Amino acid sequence: MKGDKKYIFLFLLPAAIMMTTFVYYPFFKSFYLSFFRTTGFFDKKYVGLDNYERLFSDGLLGAATLHTLEIMLYVIIFQVGLALVLAVMVDSIRWGKTFFRTVFFFPIVISGAAISLLFVLIYNFQFGLLNGALESLGFDKALWLSENSALKSVAIPTVWHYVGFYFILFLTAMSKIPSDFYEAAKLEGITGIKKTLYLTIPLILSDIKVVLTLAITGTLKVFDFVWILTRGQNQTEVLGTYMYKKALIDLNFGYGSTIAVYIVAFGVILSIVTNRLLKKEEITY
């Protein structure tokens, strides 16, 4: 057993080094810099809690938080919801599961930047796909990235990008449910939507918790879609773009690091709240 533990440690060591280098060290470095006023070069000055005082009086940060929460709402309803519906539909068919797995998962292998550039062309006012379709139907062109509609337009590729990932997670969870459960439910006359509501969903509740946590925390990292489509202007400023502007455009690394700490803390709080709201005795099989 002692020899086995040694090998386990050796296998875990590379992952531990990677996590320390690319996750824990940057976070603690950001936490350290949040107590300084610095441009990232040689002008570091200790300012105590000044950055945090500024944080809680920053109206732009509040607006960015609200915009992030709005996108989070779209993600929970449409991204996770659509993934669950697609998984239920595909799980109910006998043939073609591999085809649908591939088709629905495909967007996740494309980079967010590439998808953003694709939607830049789709939303283009002069020759975009959407306005071309509207003109062919006899309607006037629309400004898809206007101040009133930009955030919703940004949310569409954000939602579409990860639907396939959560679809695979749900479908994998459903494939582990014993067929005996469904056969017994069929004998009791539980079919269709009732089977989904009273059998499938309760049995994959733990997986739903995981997906919701991933979706919520993933929304806090949204950057590429917003930046490429709108540069985070007006009504599309989110936490990721605001942190980027403060740290790398305004060269205020101290305040940018403070925003980074805020994003991490906000994500942890949301994860805890999500788990508490979904706290329920899970069904095992």
Rank of each mutant, 00 (worst) to 15 (best):
P107T: 12
I108L: 04
I108V: 11
V109G: 01
I110P: 01
I110Y: 10
S111C: 03
S111M: 00
A113Q: 06
A114F: 11
I115T: 09
I115C: 03
L117W: 08
L117P: 00
F119R: 08
V120K: 07
V120A: 07
V120S: 12
V120Y: 00
L121Q: 06
I122F: 03
Y123K: 07
Y123V: 00
N124D: 15
F125S: 11
Q126V: 09
G128I: 00
L129M: 01
L129T: 04
L130A: 09
L130C: 05
L130K: 03
L130T: 09
N131H: 03
A133I: 15
L134Q: 05
L134R: 10
L134K: 08
E135A: 13
E135Q: 15
E135S: 14
S136H: 12
S136V: 12
L137P: 06
G138S: 07
F139P: 08
F139Y: 12
D140A: 15
D140H: 13
D140M: 13
K141G: 08
K141A: 11
L143C: 07
W144E: 11
W144N: 12
W144T: 08
W144F: 14
L145V: 04
L145K: 04
L145H: 08
S146R: 04
S146V: 04
S146P: 04
N148T: 05
S149F: 12
S149V: 02
S149T: 15
L151R: 13
L151N: 12
L151A: 12
S153Y: 02
S153P: 05
V154R: 03
A155M: 13
A155C: 13
A155L: 12
I156P: 09
I156H: 11
T158I: 15
T158S: 07
T158W: 02
V159M: 01
V159C: 02
V159N: 07
H161M: 09
Y162T: 11
V163E: 05
G164R: 01
F167I: 05
F167L: 08
F167W: 04
I168D: 03
I168R: 00
I168F: 00
L169W: 02
F170D: 02
F170H: 05
F170N: 01
L171C: 02
T172A: 15
T172L: 11
A173L: 07
A173K: 06
M174K: 06
M174N: 02
S175K: 06
K176Q: 14
K176N: 14
K176Y: 13
I177S: 04
I177L: 06
P178L: 09
P178D: 14
S179N: 14
S179W: 06
D180I: 11
D180M: 08
F181C: 10
Y182Q: 03
E183F: 08
E183D: 14
A184P: 04
A185E: 02
K186A: 14
E188K: 09
G189P: 07
G189M: 07
G189F: 03
T191H: 09
G192D: 07
G192C: 01
I193V: 15
I193N: 10
K194D: 10
T196E: 10
